[in-house]
């Protein structure tokens, strides 16, 4: 579904502090599978995730999404792709404080337009499915870490994306909540979502739900199982 060819990404290119975060990545990510990017801090996991999720462009190389080259698309089209194809669960959850759980969930759908009532119903349905229906009107800063993550997952699902991207999803969770996350992940996989995550949590990497682990070090692939 996603094919990366010789992806390189430099920061501060041409400056003294030039740094290559990715250095020639070739990777195939299959549809309806859970792929985990694994590696130590600074190995380039998050950068790779950003490029796949259309949050950043590679310095060189090609990204193909369903056989379509998206690496050279202008910002506007990248945004459209990001909105319609991907759902994001960030490490810090990145919820907007002061807004209710439901308002946060609906955020990615606002620029799309669409029926207002149906959108509310969809948001409520997602929160219900993640056992957060009773907290839908609570401000997100009042929620626990696990609840906040579930709001972030519901937000990632609101536009019904094909691909869910999660950056270090269990980094801020204890073991019980991490297991809960894996259960949710299983559910998403069953729904036919393609899931891409970064993690160095053995609980995630060794989990049965993960189909493929991609190891990275110093911006290069170490091993692909």
């Amino acid at each position: 579904m996603i094919k990366l060819s010789n992806i390189r990404k430099a920061y501060n290119q041409g400056h003294e502090n030039e740094y290559w975060a990715l250095d020639g990545i070739d990777l195939n990510i299959k549809e309806k599978q859970v792929t985990a990017l694994c590696g130590p801090s600074g190995s380039g996991k998050t950068t790779l995730l950003s490029i796949i999720g259309c949050l950043a462009r590679p310095t060189s190389g090609r990204v193909q999404l369903k056989k379509r080259d998206i690496s050279g698309l202008p910002e506007r089209f990248l945004t459209e792709e990001r909105r319609s194809t991907f759902g994001f669960v960030f490490q810090q959850f990145n919820l907007i404080k002061g807004l209710s759980a439901r308002d946060n969930v609906m955020l990615p759908a606002y620029p799309v337009g669409g029926d207002w009532k149906k959108l509310h119903e969809r948001a409520d349905g997602l929160l219900d499915s993640l056992k957060l229906g009773h907290r839908r009107d609570a401000r997100v800063e009042w929620l626990s870490g696990g609840e906040q993550q579930r709001v972030a997952i519901a937000r990632a699902m609101i536009n019904d994306p094909q691909v869910v991207i999660a950056d270090e999803p269990t980094a801020n969770l204890d073991t019980a909540l991490s297991r809960e996350f894996l259960t949710i992940l299983e559910g998403l996989k069953e729904q036919g979502k393609t899931i891409l995550l970064t993690s160095h949590d053995p609980l995630v990497v060794d989990s049965e739900v993960v189909d493929k682990v991609v190891n990275l070090r110093d911006g290069r692939l170490v091993k692909a199982d």
Binding site: L55, E75, R76, T79, E80, R82, R83, S84, F88, F90, N94, L95, I96, L107, P108, Y110, P111, R155, N159
Partner: peptide, 9 residues
């Protein structure tokens, strides 16, 4: 955050 989740400029 808004931009990351799909809002345009």
């Amino acid at each position: 955050i808004l931009k990351a989740i799909g809002w345009e400029t």
